[in-house]
Simulated scan of single mutants.
Amino acid sequence: MMKLEGIAVFVAISEAGSISEAARRLRQSKSVVSERLAELERALGAKLVHRTTRRLTLTEDGAAFLNRARRIVGDVERAAADMAERRGAMVGPLRISAPVTFGRMHLGPALYPFLAAHPQIELTLDLDDRRVDASSGGFDAVIRHGPILDSRLMAWKLAPSSRVLCASPAYIAEHGAPGSIDELSGHKGIFYTNRGVSDWRFPRGSAGGVDADAIVVHGRLGLGLNNGDMIRDAAIAGLGIALLPMFIAGPAMKSGALLPIDIGMRPEGEFIYLAHPEGRNPSAKLRAMADHLSATFGNPPYWDHPTV
């Protein structure tokens, strides 16, 4: 019979990359961790891990079992946390995924006071610009910027997010500033590759809201990057025009390193949102964290430039 301790050990080993590191994280002896893994393999009738003197890797069976093992461990942890929350306590694990630049610039500073006020919450924050699968990845929720593409997620809006076309003074001095959609198409663009070619969208009504009939501008590819910090820095270096959220571009625009470009239309409006898998009851601590973040960011959010 499979035991929960063995499943938890297997998940810890797969995440730690070694039995000794998993033992350290679990605060158990290496021999106990090894024996629990062996018991699980015997119960399943399959080898889950390849062990060598230099490294540890998952077998094909181990890789197939890992996602389900994570869900089992996560469900048990959440059940225990839910029982504690019924008694009025904010305790237990909380696993969140968020974008790298937003996490570094805004999410971290907003979260630290919340975690200090609730020291029994065990937060794991995974910063990744890719759109991870919340369910299969074992996340309680994901924090993202932009449109909500996964219909299996239930989203809570944390803050509106405006974006601005911008370029360096040197780029504008050399190439001029486009004054229309048609002129913008002729300029070099610095594009966010995780969004694809249809990222530069401008609603025909120019109000900045979501518009299915928006004008999509592709421009000439000057540079494609998958990180907001690097897009901002490339724009400051004069490599092209960038479409950046104000939570990234704001400081550079205030210092004059980037200048706004007005083409007579505003980019499509977006949001910072927290999304959790549909059908999964969000915990009280997740709701409390979302409320805290929403209040901290504000509406309009504090990072918005007053002249944009």
Rank of each mutant, 00 (worst) to 15 (best):
L153Y: 03
L153H: 04
M154R: 13
M154T: 15
A155V: 14
W156C: 05
W156D: 08
K157P: 12
K157W: 01
L158I: 14
L158A: 06
A159M: 06
A159T: 10
S162W: 03
S162H: 08
S162P: 02
V164C: 08
V164G: 05
V164Q: 09
L165P: 04
C166A: 15
C166L: 10
A167F: 02
A167K: 07
S168H: 10
P169V: 13
A170R: 12
I172P: 01
E174Y: 00
A177E: 10
A177M: 09
P178W: 03
G179F: 01
S180P: 10
S180I: 09
I181F: 06
I181L: 15
I181Y: 00
D182C: 00
D182N: 07
L184S: 01
S185F: 00
S185P: 00
G186V: 07
H187M: 11
H187Q: 08
G189R: 04
G189M: 15
I190W: 05
F191P: 01
F191M: 11
Y192D: 15
Y192E: 14
T193H: 09
T193M: 12
N194W: 13
N194D: 12
S198A: 14
S198I: 03
D199R: 07
D199A: 14
D199Y: 12
R201E: 07
R201D: 04
R201Q: 12
P203S: 13
P203R: 08
G205L: 14
G205R: 14
A207K: 12
G208L: 08
G208T: 10
G209P: 09
V210C: 05
A212Y: 07
A212Q: 12
D213M: 13
D213T: 11
V217H: 03
V217P: 01
H218G: 02
H218C: 06
G219T: 03
G219A: 01
G219L: 00
L221F: 00
G222V: 02
L223F: 01
L223E: 05
N226L: 03
N226H: 08
G228C: 02
G228V: 02
D229Y: 09
D229N: 07
D229M: 05
M230S: 14
M230Q: 12
